[in-house]
Amino acid sequence: MTARADRLRPIGAVPGQKRRSLPERAGIGLKPEHLQEILDTAPDIGFFEIHAENYMVDGGPFHHYLTRIRERYPLSIHGVGLSIGGEDALDERHLDRLAVLLDRYQPESFSEHLAWSSHGGTFLNDLLPVPYHAATLARVCEHIDRVQDRLKRRMLLENPATYVEFAASTMAEPDFIGEVVRRSGCGLLLDVNNVYVSSINHGRDQRAAVSAMPLAAVGQIHLAGFAEDTDAAGASLLIDSHGAPVAEAVWDLYRYALDRLGPMPTLIERDNDIPPLPVLLAEAQQAERIMKRLSPIASREAVA
């Protein structure tokens, strides 16, 4: 173990406050299309994840259903609008909204992205890439410190899917993320699809990219489907669309990651072309089968 380990707390744990963590099972994103069916059929699923911003409304059906579903299932709240990689100061009103939501639903996990989505008060509605150098590192850590202070909990930071890199970058992505984790004490939400997409898009080895991440800090995994395009030179350009089933290559990389991590709460993300609920449940079951088939060595390491 590295020196980093003693800064890490169990996911979701804050001294003096007992908080459960997500089970080592698979979960799916909670979609409006499926709310009533979930209540009617009570599917056996490890947890649900919501996008925080979708529930930052005063009342109505979304809260009605989420309240009932949360009574029955573990919950992960995943933010998409905090702009942790932004140049502006964090939006304190948005942090307040997050605090209200987390207080109301007491999720087992809270996560956000290594990305920016707002600039100059305008919300740009995408997870935009951050150059990796000393100044952005300092700012990202400062923002995560503020988030963890305000929300009084440890957060998980998700690695991005990117399509371009920056001339200004001086650090490799896993080194940048490793340093953020070390300085801020946040955990890592390892998005295996994002690692795969970024590796293809930037000509890197995807297994090396997984291995270089601060794996001791991983508290959750995301899996999703991508779309395929090409860049101006005809090279493969993968788009993190969340609009397709998890690709076989991403399942392979998931097995590779789990061999190093042991069982890990795993989310099947689907945000576009939402299929019927049973299709998503089947993908979650596939993740759980892979988790159960872990080699005994990996499982022992994970427990130790």
């Binding site: 150059p131 371009v164 890199e165 920056f166 001339a167 000509g203 860049d231 101006a232 030179a233 090279a235």
Partner: peptide, 13 residues
């Protein structure tokens, strides 16, 4: 300020 690993023009990305 954008770069690409294969030197492709970044516009499309």
């Amino acid at each position: 300020g954008l770069t690409t690993w294969n030197g492709s023009a970044p516009e499309k990305r």
